[in-house]
Write a protein that binds this DNA or RNA. Structure first.
Lengths: 183, 183
DNA sequence: TTACTCATGTAAAAGGTTACATGATTAC
DNA sequence: GTAATCATGTAACCTTTTACATGAGTAA
């Protein structure tokens, strides 16, 4: 299943929406996050419909305007989403991970806790690797001034370490919230 | 200029390389970061060559193997890269920001400091927005259990806050390093 | 024998972006 | 009168991914 289709299903799993509504929701980076694509949305919706993962619920006609086609997810659609969410994702695909998290409410807490614990170990592993890398670069040159390409390299890896640390921290927090079953 | 071309220029600004070498460097996520594309690399290289931003430096022939074509960046290529680096990038494009940082050694520290200070303000702004958003969601429901879609929504925004915080922290660090001109 | 590495490259397919078309309405 | 909003959708283009092709060598 393509990522757009998964995004559409993820939105419809929460509430029935029209294509236009979904586009609007995806515009705000806060409400949603995925790199937003404009208008292969409608073909994707039709495809979901022919596959039976989504169905037309109603038309909302407001006087002069074109009719709004409200879609809802089917049981089959929900099932497909659930399967995708617990499927282990390859590391490094950030958007996919966020999308999976967005659907985490569909999954039993115990399962999620296990996923988060694995995830946490991955982040810790990467932090270690980055530290080794930085140490290696630092050893080569004792003074890294800002005209040195390695200045930029080290800076980037330091960013990586901060990023991975925040991921680890978040995993901890999530595990905590899941255990007491409250956010 | 396309992003692949910028990535290739960024690598060549540091040292002459063959297409294959660049591909290898991009494989490891630590050394480089960009979502790595396979093989429109060669067309992109040729295009850079015809535009005069890159030139063939030498052939490295090792016995039986196909000759390695080593490219180096031209003065014009360096100029183009420098122009691109200081050009203000629209917020939200993470990969582009990392690529810009990867080339930061080409830019005068004073200029970079200004860029980082702007950037820091952006992150702070976004943190504020996220906090408002979380508060709004929390008010709607007093208890957010894990089967509630809002549980996932809040979790995602919390991740956003942690992410933006690590960006802000990094900006601070960078400004500091740039001021004392040492990493 | 099979599979992988080195190194170049091409072709086809999938995915994504931009621009356009419709048509009534509201705001400047 | 111009532009924007609401809502659907299509067409053309550009980018990205996947797969293939070559061909010697090396490791299981």
């Amino acid at each position: 299943m393509s990522s757009i289709q998964l995004v559409l299903l993820s939105l419809l799993a929460r509430e029935p929406l029209s294509g236009y509504d979904m586009k609007q929701q995806m515009k705000g980076r806060i409400n949603f996050f995925y790199k937003i694509n404009n208008n292969q949305l409608y073909p994707a919706l039709s495809k979901l419909e022919t596959e039976g993962l989504v169905q037309l619920q109603s038309y909302e006609r407001e006087s002069y305007r074109p009719a709004k086609k409200i879609y809802k997810i089917t049981d089959m659609g929900i099932e497909r989403l659930k399967e995708w969410v617990i499927k282990p994702s390859e590391p490094g695909n950030w958007d996919e991970f966020l999308l999976m998290q967005y659907n985490s409410w569909l999954v039993a807490p115990e399962v999620l806790i296990r996923i988060m614990e694995d995830r946490k170990r991955e982040h810790e592993q990467r932090i270690k690797e980055y530290r080794v890398k930085v140490a290696a670069l630092r050893e080569q040159n004792e003074r890294l001034t800002s005209e040195n390409p390695l200045f930029s390299s080290v800076a980037l890896i330091e960013m990586g370490i901060l990023f991975e640390s925040s991921c680890r921290e978040w995993c901890d927090k999530m595990i905590d919230c899941l255990k007491k079953n409250e956010m």
